[in-house]
Amino acid sequence: MVSILVVNGPNLNMLGKREPEVYGRETLDDIVARLEKVMDELGGRMEHCQSNHEGVLIDAIHRAKGVHDGIVINPGAFTHYSYALRDALAAVSLPTIEVHISNVHAREAFRHHSVIAPIAVGQVIGLGTDGYEWALRALVRKISRV
């Protein structure tokens, strides 16, 4: 049974309320419920962690080693500068897919660079909240082939 850790960074707890013209009206609870159904369909399981605090996310990633088979992460603003988060992901050596709801490359220049991308097996960017599902399905497929 494949097990995936889904990690969401700062401000993602505000989905559905924060800039709905950019991020949509779906809440993080809505997304997590949908992903749990997808994992049931795929015969796997998932755990979800969201925090506005970098250390909490790092601790969750560290605990994933030996428990989960991969990670789907939307690092939020940590994408652009958190070498600590990047190093945590690298340290656990689990296949990781980075997700962004909006097309970060069509937004402010500071959003164009990800310190996570070089250690991720892939990115899903700009497909709205559906990107989580596509990332989850792709990661499970990738892990199942190994």
Rank of each mutant, 00 (worst) to 15 (best):
21 E>W: 01
18 R>Q: 06
39 M>H: 02
16 G>L: 15
116 I>N: 02
123 Q>A: 12
4 I>S: 01
92 V>E: 14
53 H>F: 08
46 M>W: 05
8 N>Q: 08
105 H>Y: 15
24 G>L: 15
133 E>I: 07
120 A>L: 12
76 G>W: 07
126 G>T: 04
124 V>K: 01
68 H>E: 14
73 I>N: 03
40 D>Q: 10
44 G>R: 09
111 R>V: 11
81 Y>L: 07
24 G>A: 15
102 S>E: 11
42 L>N: 06
53 H>G: 05
106 A>D: 07
89 L>G: 06
49 C>H: 08
118 P>G: 09
138 A>C: 05
106 A>Y: 03
38 V>L: 13
122 G>V: 10
90 A>S: 13
94 L>G: 04
67 V>R: 15
107 R>F: 07
116 I>K: 01
59 D>R: 06
1 M>E: 02
10 P>K: 00
53 H>S: 08
124 V>F: 01
103 N>L: 12
14 M>S: 11
31 I>Q: 08
106 A>C: 10
110 F>D: 09
61 I>S: 09
114 S>M: 11
55 G>M: 08
134 W>T: 02
112 H>T: 13
68 H>G: 02
3 S>D: 11
60 A>N: 05
111 R>I: 13
101 I>N: 05
36 E>W: 02
115 V>W: 09
82 S>A: 10
37 K>H: 09
141 R>F: 12
33 A>R: 10
13 N>V: 15
4 I>C: 08
72 V>L: 15
40 D>H: 06
119 I>Y: 00
74 N>L: 08
128 G>R: 09
109 A>H: 11
57 L>W: 02
85 L>D: 04
77 A>C: 09
62 H>M: 05
122 G>L: 14
43 G>W: 10
85 L>A: 06
57 L>N: 14
103 N>E: 15
66 G>V: 09
99 V>K: 03
23 Y>Q: 09
15 L>N: 11
33 A>F: 06
100 H>P: 07
22 V>K: 15
67 V>N: 04
104 V>K: 08
14 M>G: 01
44 G>Y: 03
132 Y>C: 07
141 R>V: 06
135 A>M: 06
109 A>C: 03
29 D>G: 08
85 L>C: 08
10 P>M: 15
46 M>P: 10
136 L>P: 05
12 L>W: 01
47 E>T: 14
81 Y>E: 00
25 R>M: 14
22 V>Y: 10
110 F>Q: 13
55 G>P: 02
17 K>F: 04
83 Y>L: 15
21 E>Q: 13
62 H>R: 03
121 V>K: 13
3 S>I: 01
110 F>A: 14
34 R>F: 00
110 F>W: 15
35 L>Q: 12
106 A>H: 09
116 I>D: 11
129 T>M: 06
30 D>L: 12
30 D>S: 10
48 H>P: 00
2 V>E: 11
115 V>M: 14
95 P>C: 12
136 L>M: 13
17 K>D: 11
28 L>Y: 09
134 W>D: 00
83 Y>R: 10
67 V>Q: 11
40 D>T: 13
119 I>A: 00
136 L>R: 03
52 N>A: 11
105 H>V: 06
100 H>A: 00
37 K>D: 15
15 L>Y: 12
59 D>Q: 10
85 L>F: 03
